[in-house]
Design a protein around this nucleic acid. Sequence first.
DNA 1: CGATTTTTTGAATCATATCAACGTACGTGG
DNA 2: CCACGTACGTTGATATGATTCAAAAAATCG
Lengths: 193, 193
Amino acid sequence: MFDLFFKKLEDRISLTDAEKELIKSHLIPKKLRRRQYLLQEGEVCKYAAFVTKGALRAYTVDEKDNEHIVQFALEGWMISDLYSFITGEPATYTIDALEDSELILMSQASRQELMQQIPSFLQFSYFQIQNAYIALQRRITDLISLSTEEKYTKLIKTYPHIVERVPQHMIASYLGLTPETLSRTRKQMAKNK
Amino acid sequence: MFDLFFKKLEDRISLTDAEKELIKSHLIPKKLRRRQYLLQEGEVCKYAAFVTKGALRAYTVDEKDNEHIVQFALEGWMISDLYSFITGEPATYTIDALEDSELILMSQASRQELMQQIPSFLQFSYFQIQNAYIALQRRITDLISLSTEEKYTKLIKTYPHIVERVPQHMIASYLGLTPETLSRTRKQMAKNK
DNA sequence: CGATTTTTTGAATCATATCAACGTACGTGG
DNA sequence: CCACGTACGTTGATATGATTCAAAAAATCG
């Protein structure tokens, strides 16, 4: 149940049995069916989610009802509306499941307590978000500097598993393109190969 | 000299005099002239910089010699090639000064020691990068969902001080546009007002 | 003041979005 | 398990918006 979660933790830091028990007492398992919401825009994000199985996405919807995907999360990833989670303000993102999924939830209160009680948990959280930050900075670099084809090629290389499991029009959304443009770009790429 | 730095720190956490002294012993002041490099692509990023005065930018250069600005840093901001800084791999970004600037540098070794010795310093670092992460996520959302005009409008609202101090063609670069496009968009906006 | 950088403008070209239609695959309930 | 309805990907025609290249005007620096 919590195996993947503790594997990730203990990859980076070491924990005593007592610490592991304390952490466990704050974890909330949750299953989500395909298309089910974890969070809707306007709600407060009460939980950060760790994905143990399945796939989720976070996205905004604009005035023309177009969805813009900010993040995917597969097994081993975290997902939340972090701003809403830490401030208690209404969420700007909607999060839902792309497949039947299993999550581990943690509330803000729990997270704060664990960070206070267990120094290495804070350490871990710091490493986590530091890596996430680097990944976002790379994505920004790609968004402002690459051509459509390069963006797609790089995505395949960096996250092959995402491209395999997620519908193509959602990939387009994640890259800031229309589905038609991505379809045509792929056709072009196939021809030139 | 270190006033702004400690103000930022003590906004969030409280420090004993001994802790402050320890931190001070790891800080390296540095002045940078306009157009001077702090880091060049390919070098290892030895220091994270805190800006006490002036303005810097981090950017990549593509095959066509176009610069793509990933980040600006004004007073009170941090700037570095974080990936290179923590891994010791060659930097992918170049960092230089847009104005004569004053910085406080900290090495990776210093940062690690301070995070180990001073729990609240780790706390602080965590808050910092968490906020930086949220800002990047917002920027990605804007890049994939807004029109050119909306991107510019939002930038003015969010970072008015940046728009005032940075040449317009660099703003364009930051938004993923050509200078010509931003110039024309601004003209259009002025007309419609 | 002269030199350089920056912004603006114009015209031509290229890339992407949009709207509509079609074929296919898929999952969902009977 | 089949059939229906929805979701998904592709394609075409057209419109819109952005880039490119060149040049000149404006602003800034030393």
